[in-house]
Nucleic acid binder design. Structure first.
Lengths: 237, 237
DNA sequence: GCCGGGCATCAAGAAACCATCAAGATGCCG
DNA sequence: CGGCATCTTGATGGTTTCTTGATGCCCGGC
């Protein structure tokens, strides 16, 4: 989500319709880019990288279906077609060309907005949550794949070890108390079993620290807890 | 082997309409499961794990919108609503409840099929069906042609074995939990039958691992799940 | 120098988990 | 109806992981 709302590319040649859609969409908080021709539309897709394309099929300088195909060659942006043509074959053609939905004019603004929400939902899910990867020194922690690589070699962690490391990784640089770690990993009932953390931290260090006796990544904060370094500051000898 | 086409759950109480849709969809190569009530529909989703739900809103024993919400709580299966009600508010409500598309009766079969193709396209992309061919070691998995080749020889997998391998293949390198595998392959109702996964994983390994006792491709992550290796680190015994 | 608290490490047993075999159950095909 | 492929389910033995207790280190206070 960008600061001022999602960016919609409106491809429509008729001025009145464009004014109407512009007003309605802006009222909903969308940002807008507009194009009146196939040429303009292609340029706009390339330069603005919109979050959704709202495409009227009846353009003066070319075929909206072909435009859909061309956009699809280089982008997965949701394309929502709006058209006065209501023939079934038109719909099938547009949808098979890569459009994600097809509305026949006249349509209600609420339905258009609902279908836009569906498109955003799909596209959001498709892109998924940004794959969070944490890198500290030679440690490479991929939270999405649940994979840990140290110095180029994959390392196997037990469930508890991974939970601890993932917790620290999601809070790189921050200090976590024994209690916080215990509650997150074992559950609130274990908040006093400080020893558990020590044992598993030792195992973890054996696996990811170059010299477990002198931790550079998983550092102890005496009397408080542990912390995952966010930079690999050059350490002393 | 019935495993050919995609499985569609048809939720429709009116007998005539059901006959018509059944005939049309089967002619297109889809496999069908049918439900006439909300209750039946929920059971069918949980037990048959369909690839798409075709839902008529006018059910006798309850609300189709509520059914949509309930399905969405446990599954991301595409839901395509078909309804005699054409009011805009009905559409908005259904789409916001989690439906992926909304067709008003009467509709053309070709449009329905085109919209189903869109739904499959979305769902496939969402699950990451980007790379149609996955290669790990001597395993060659072609997701598009549904073909598995090991060391140059084609290998036959049962439907469940293939589903598991395809799921892991679409997520190469990513660790999938027992639960994720069970829900994707068997359906939401089977999330606790961990043993199923073990048995079929053993069969899979017999077929695609050089030494099934020392898996290099289908690796176990004890306490969590399984993973399809993406890098081929030389593993020692 | 001696003591005590917090910490790291080791190791053994318990518990949880996994692989595998095989016998029934099921569904599909002719 | 019988044969075939597949899936479910139970039983068994092996493996990994977790817990728990024992031991020794570091460091500051006294």
């Amino acid at each position: 989500m960008t600061g001022g709302g999602q960016l919609v590319l409106l491809v429509e040649d008729e001025a009145a319709m464009r004014r109407f859609l512009r007003a309605s969409l802006q009222a909903q908080g969308f940002r807008l880019v507009e194009a009146a021709t196939v040429r303009e539309a292609l340029i706009a897709v390339a330069t603005h990288n919109p979050d959704l394309v709202l495409l009227d099929l009846g353009l003066p300088d070319g075929d909206g279906i072909a435009l859909t195909r061309t956009i699809r060659e280089g982008s997965r942006v949701p394309i929502l077609v709006v058209s006065a043509r209501g023939r079934e074959s038109d719909k099938v053609e547009a949808l098979d060309a890569g459009a994600d939905d097809y509305l026949t004019k006249p349509f209600g603004m609420n339905e258009l907005l609902a279908r836009m929400r569906v498109a955003f939902r799909h596209h959001g899910a498709e892109r998924g949550e940004r794959a969070p990867v944490v890198e500290v020194g030679e440690l490479h922690l991929d939270l999405e794949r649940r994979q840990v690589v140290v110095a180029g070699t994959e390392v196997h962690l037990t469930p508890i070890e991974y939970k601890i490391l993932a917790l620290l990784g999601r809070n790189v640089g921050k200090l976590l108390t024994h209690q916080q770690i215990l509650e997150e990993v074992w559950g609130p009932a274990y908040a006093t079993h400080t020893h558990y953390v020590r044992v598993h931290m030792a195992e973890l260090r054996k696996k990811i620290e170059r010299d477990p006796a002198r931790p550079r990544i998983l550092v102890t904060e005496p009397g408080v807890g542990y912390r995952l370094r966010d930079r690999d500051d050059a350490a002393r000898g």
